[in-house]
Design a protein around this nucleic acid. Structure first.
Lengths: 196, 196
DNA sequence: CAGATGACAGATTTCAAACTCTGTCATTTG
DNA sequence: CAAATGACAGAGTTTGAAATCTGTCATCTG
């Protein structure tokens, strides 16, 4: 079975769409391009995704899910000190973002456009990240390392206080040399505020 | 001396430019429009501002200076508790921003465009705001209410941790009803981290 | 008959020609 | 003679006609 005769699956379409987005950028990537890349007619793509918007949304979700998967490991490593786990989680998030934005700025810009047009999916992604944070905060409160409180709203506050280091609208700042020190200064202040 | 024969000053040009920007928006406001509004030829405008970019920059600076002036009063009220002054300062900044964005979204969008194209002037504006914060933090450390440290870098950390509530790239969120609670949650965490 | 195709209508984007704006400067005005 | 003017060249923007794309569906193929 050669690759060109493999059955057409949603997964293969998503892979081809990522490639077309990478090559053509968010404004010029068309459904016809995706079909051409797969050697099928564009009508076949519409059998798996009802609209172009739905296809772009699915690609966005896949990308965001890969990103949150990597962080879950840090969040759920229950053996380690919650304060240190919080630091590592934020540092991991920031490093991943900065690497993506720095290594391939065009692809990052492409995904920033997709993120802007898919508020719903992004909302779920952020909810997942805050849920991971909530688990760390909960562990810290349970062990008495952190002052008691509502873990979910504390987690949300931590996430928002560090927007500068993960929200793509701040991406231009991530190349400045002081940025790492700025993150550490904020984390220190937040962790001090969190301590029992 | 009727208004139309008044001498042409930089100040009058800036006022006319604000009005033209308000009416036509940032993309359609031309130097010719500004000259027409003043009843002069566009060549006369170029006697006071070397380029259109310089004129737009001057308008932006004027607007930002008006904004920081209002906050300076809170920052420099030396009689009050630094912690409460910090709260009031951030609340004042947020209220002003939210009011501008909510009351006249088109004008706010216009100034957001100007802010994007004038990084230098915005940098000075932010430096002024951080300087105001630094004065509050300094007072708090001097009086022993805040833990000792470098007031300037703590002030910068406070400013960045609250980006979500003053940076125009987050303006879309400022209409959400939970936003006030989110600000208070972050301020509480930060002030706890700051306390001696 | 499940899955793929490509012709098609309406929506959207592209492209080049026409137009408007910016910035300069020789000339005019008070 | 200091300040203002408006004609002008080149840069940038608008506009509408042509080209392309999206989404549907009747037809085809294995």
């Amino acid at each position: 079975m050669s690759p060109t005769t493999e059955t057409l699956t949603a997964e293969r379409i998503l892979e081809a769409t990522e490639e077309v987005l990478r090559r053509h950028g968010p404004t010029k990537a068309t459904v016809v391009d995706v079909a051409r890349a797969l050697g099928v007619s564009h009508g076949s793509v519409y059998r798996h995704f009802r609209t172009k918007a739905e296809l772009r949304e699915a690609v966005t979700k896949r990308w965001l899910d890969r990103a949150s998967g990597a962080l879950a490991a840090i969040a759920d490593d229950g053996d380690r000190d919650p304060a240190q786990r919080l630091r590592d989680w934020f540092q991991g998030l920031f490093d991943a973002k900065r690497r993506k934005a720095g290594d391939d700025p065009e692809l990052f810009a492409t995904y920033s456009v997709l993120v802007d047009e898919n508020g719903e999916v992004v909302g779920e992604h952020i909810a997942e990240l805050v849920a991971q944070l909530t688990r760390i905060v909960e562990a810290g409160m349970a062990s008495g390392v952190f002052a008691p409180g509502d873990p979910a709203s504390v987690a949300r506050a931590l996430f928002h206080a560090t927007d500068r280091f993960h929200d793509p609208c701040h991406a231009r700042e991530w190349t400045r040399p002081e940025i790492q020190d700025e993150l550490e200064a904020i984390l220190q202040l937040l962790l001090r505020g969190l301590a029992a």
